[in-house]
């Protein structure tokens, strides 16, 4: 089935994560006149030259590719802010800085399609990449110190990051829970045979190859 992610490897494919990010609103400055667009997903416009307006990212990219608008980069994508975020990410081992849920995807789409609208593009790009690397490393390290077996809070973790660690975390927490839970004697036989089968269904996918 085209477009479906393989549920055994990761729940959402990178394309699906990007699809969701494309619904985030961004500000553009159109350079043409166009009436309001009455989409199924909402009404956008109308579009008047030099008057900024809010549209979903996919629409902004479509207009930009045809040379019909310029992007106003989001506030968080400034060199100043990203430098601060990077410093803060490096300072604290346990907490994550608040960034848009889809910051990786938004940044990538903007780098791909609107490089001339981002001041200090190369600086911004390398900052976002550094932030992403620091956060991923931190997330992997923090996995070792998960507490609690029924609910684990993960604050300010982004869409891509969640999706990346999900298969591993799910299996780990399932195992914790299974060992933690006092199991009724009667069910033991059926339960373990079921667990066995499911374990065979889903291929193991370690987060880090070491």
């Amino acid at each position: 089935m085209a477009g479906q992610s393989d549920p055994h490897i990761s729940l959402f494919s990178p394309q699906e994560v990007e699809f969701m990010a494309e619904d985030e609103m961004v500000e553009i400055v159109p350079n043409m006149n166009m009436d309001t667009l009455n989409f199924i997903s909402g009404n956008f416009g109308r579009f008047v030259p030099q008057i900024p307006t809010q549209v979903p990212l996919w629409l902004a990219v479509a207009l930009k590719r045809r040379g019909k608008c310029n992007f106003r980069p989001p506030v968080w994508m400034s060199v100043d802010n990203l430098t601060q975020v990077l410093e803060a990410e490096r300072e604290s081992q346990s907490t994550f800085q608040p960034l848009p849920f889809s910051y990786v995807e938004i940044a990538r789409l903007l780098f791909d399609h609107a490089r001339d609208d981002i001041p200090d593009m190369y600086m911004v790009r390398s900052l976002v990449e550094d932030i992403r690397d620091v956060r991923l490393h931190k997330l992997e390290t923090n996995l070792g110190s998960f507490q609690g077996t029924s609910a684990v809070k993960v604050s300010n973790v982004s869409a891509m990051e969640v999706n990346l660690v999900r298969p591993f975390v799910r299996r780990a927490l399932e195992a914790f829970y299974k060992h933690d839970k006092p199991e009724p004697e009667v069910n033991r036989g059926t339960r373990s045979s079921r667990q066995q089968r499911e374990a065979n269904n889903e291929p193991r996918r370690p987060l880090r190859q070491r």
Partner: peptide, 17 residues
């Protein structure tokens, strides 16, 4: 305008997906 039509088509494609 073909541009407008193609934008509507994109919105439609997303909902259909």
């Amino acid at each position: 305008d073909p541009l407008v039509v193609s934008l509507y088509q994109m919105d439609l494609d997303r909902t259909q997906f």
